[in-house]
């Protein structure tokens, strides 16, 4: 027996798969957004609103995990995006391998939008712990926190807030019914992650959606130009 020293992080093999997938998507100009949230955060309503508002401006895809999926594939297709099924085999998170498998045929055929923009929304498994630890190969991590969940979530799930590039605070139309302080939420999140972009929105009334949609289109356009 001999000893082989490794000193590699446990996510090392996944990190490499993730970078390979990100490079492939970038080369095709396909912008991948990893969406993480707890169940019941308003993901479906947000996605359907985004599809409705953006379908004329970009080719849209939604990848759904097979367990704990909140998003209805039929509703997604009816709204104007293409739905893609991913297989997690009962795992509590999506990793780069699963994401790559789900996107295989899309990558093979390439973007259908010609010179237009392509955005893929990856619906990760609905919890705020495990998905934060695995790079899916996405260009950006987007996290959803809904007003009813409370402004103390950054204290309970710090890693998720640290790993996210964007935080969307949903259900702002319900603010008057909950003890949710937008100031406290901003302060707690920014302490964990000073660079994070925060978009408070109501997918129901449309309030705040413009800024989020502009960010999505901008990011997809920058990737295409690069």
């Amino acid at each position: 027996m001999k000893t082989i020293e490794l000193h590699r992080t446990i996510t090392d093999s996944n990190d490499r798969d993730a970078q390979a997938l990100r490079d492939k998507l970038s080369a095709k100009g396909i912008f991948l957004v990893n969406i993480m949230s707890s169940a019941g955060s308003g993901k479906t309503t947000l996605l359907l609103r985004l599809i409705k508002d953006l379908k004329e401006k970009a080719q849209l895809y939604v990848v759904e995990a097979d367990i704990a999926s909140d998003v209805d594939a039929v509703a997604v297709e009816n709204a104007g995006a293409r739905s893609i099924q991913a297989h997690t085999d009962g795992m509590c998170h999506m990793d780069a391998g699963m994401t790559a498998d789900a996107l295989e045929s899309l990558l093979a055929e390439g973007s259908q939008s010609g010179n237009g923009l392509s955005i893929v929304f990856l619906e990760n498994v609905g919890n705020l712990i495990c998905p934060a630890e695995y790079d899916t190969g996405a260009h950006r991590n987007l996290m959803i926190l809904s007003v009813p969940e409370g402004d103390d979530k950054p204290l309970k799930y710090p890693l998720m807030f640290e790993k996210s590039d964007v935080l969307v605070i949903t259900k702002t139309d319900a603010l008057q019914y909950f003890d949710f302080s937008m100031d406290k939420a901003f302060e707690r999140v920014k302490r964990l992650n000073p660079d994070i972009k925060i978009f408070p929105v109501s997918a129901k009334t449309g309030e705040g959606m413009d800024a989020l949609e502009e960010w999505l289109l901008d990011s997809a356009a920058k990737l295409k130009e690069a």
């Binding site: 082989i4 000193h7 992080t9 446990i10």
Partner: peptide, 11 residues
């Protein structure tokens, strides 16, 4: 931390 430090193996 979350590291694989080393393995013992027959080669």
């Amino acid at each position: 931390q979350f590291e694989i430090k080393e393995i013992e193996a027959e080669t």
